[in-house]
């Protein structure tokens, strides 16, 4: 009435969410699967940010990791193989109020979904993209993925994967308008937590490649790094992932790396002998497409009617 908003009332009962509010169905991943660590961490990030469960949407494609939405108590969209990102972009396009998460794997994102991956990074919509990279197809039982190491034996290449693996970090870095690239192992809970939290807080697409353990089909993918943390390079910087001394003590190899420096980022990303851990690249000024796609949402029906009649006038006989 009188142009005032009808509802000024505050919510009477303040809602506080516990981890249980973000829990979905019981996770059916193998014992020792790194996905469980990511799921638990995600629940904690949501809880600590006190996100409204009804306002978060977890989108995925197909594969072991793409079961993620079923294990989160928010809204979810478990789509088609390789298509998590277009679906997620669509969710966000006209609903900037929704908190969007994407869970996808190395096969889902880097192989069948490669086209969407490239373009979604460029769209840079405000969302988190978690790549569960275990270097193998798990759900379909041990086929070579784009990140399977050369020579690893799989059911499609019993004598060993023939080609050098793809480096998703350099590929992603090469995409214009990319704004946040991090890499993290699933077996370091504090670092995993801080990395996912930073991606969640980032305005734009927070791309996190998680080195994920698959004890059943690709145990050798992560084991060397798990057993020898010095084989990874911890990236430190005041604009990087916050990390406490406990985390820093684990990784003997460290480098002060400015995530705003693209050339330096490429330099650490391309070194396959020593995978970088932490924030590789950050651009807080990259245009966010979901800000453009949401234009005009405040237009009233009356204004629509007038505009539509003006459109019809142009064709009037």
């Amino acid at each position: 009435m009188f142009g005032l908003k009808a509802d000024w009332s505050l919510e009477v009962f303040e809602r506080y969410f516990t981890l249980g509010d973000y829990a979905g169905g019981e996770a059916r991943w193998c014992p020792g699967c790194g996905d469980l660590a990511v799921l638990n961490t995600m629940h904690r990030v949501l809880r600590d940010a006190q996100m409204l469960p009804e306002k978060s949407v977890v989108v995925s494609g197909i594969g072991c990791s793409s079961r993620l939405p079923h294990y989160v108590g928010t809204y979810g969209l478990h789509g088609l193989h390789g298509r998590a990102l277009p679906l997620a972009n669509g969710v966000k396009a006209r609903r900037p109020d929704l908190d969007v998460w994407v869970g996808t794997g190395d096969g889902d994102c880097f192989s069948i979904g490669a086209g969407a991956w490239i373009h979604s990074m460029r769209y840079n919509m405000d969302m988190v993209v978690l790549i569960f990279d275990n270097g193998i197809y798990g759900l379909t039982k041990k086929q070579t993925s784009p990140t399977t190491p050369t020579g690893a034996s799989t059911n499609t290449h019993p004598v060993g994967a023939p080609l050098p693996p793809m480096n998703p970090l350099t590929v992603t870095l090469g995409i214009s308008n990319v704004s946040f690239i991090a890499q993290v192992p699933d077996w370091n809970p504090p670092l995993l937590y801080e990395t996912i939290k930073a991606a969640h807080q980032h305005k734009g697409t927070g791309f996190v490649r998680i080195l994920q353990r698959c004890p059943v089909f690709s145990p050798d993918f992560c084991k060397p790094y798990q057993e020898n943390p010095e084989r990874m390079l911890l990236l430190t910087h005041e604009d990087g992932i916050p990390m406490d001394p406990g985390v820093k003590r684990v990784f003997s190899e460290q480098r002060e790396h400015d995530p705003h420096d693209w050339l330096a980022a490429m330099d650490v990303a391309r070194d396959l002998s020593r995978p970088p851990i932490g924030l590789i690249y950050l651009d807080t000024d990259a245009p966010v497409y979901s800000e453009q796609s949401a234009h005009g949402m405040d237009i009233t029906d009356g204004e629509k009617l007038a505009a539509l009649n003006a459109a019809l006038d142009r064709f009037a006989v």
Partner: peptide, 21 residues
């Protein structure tokens, strides 16, 4: 009228985007 045209990267992404919305 407050609408938005999204030119997607391919036909599949185009319909995926619409389904998401």
């Amino acid at each position: 009228v407050g609408g938005f045209v999204h030119q997607a990267e391919d036909e599949i992404a185009a319909i995926g985007f619409a389904i998401g919305a």
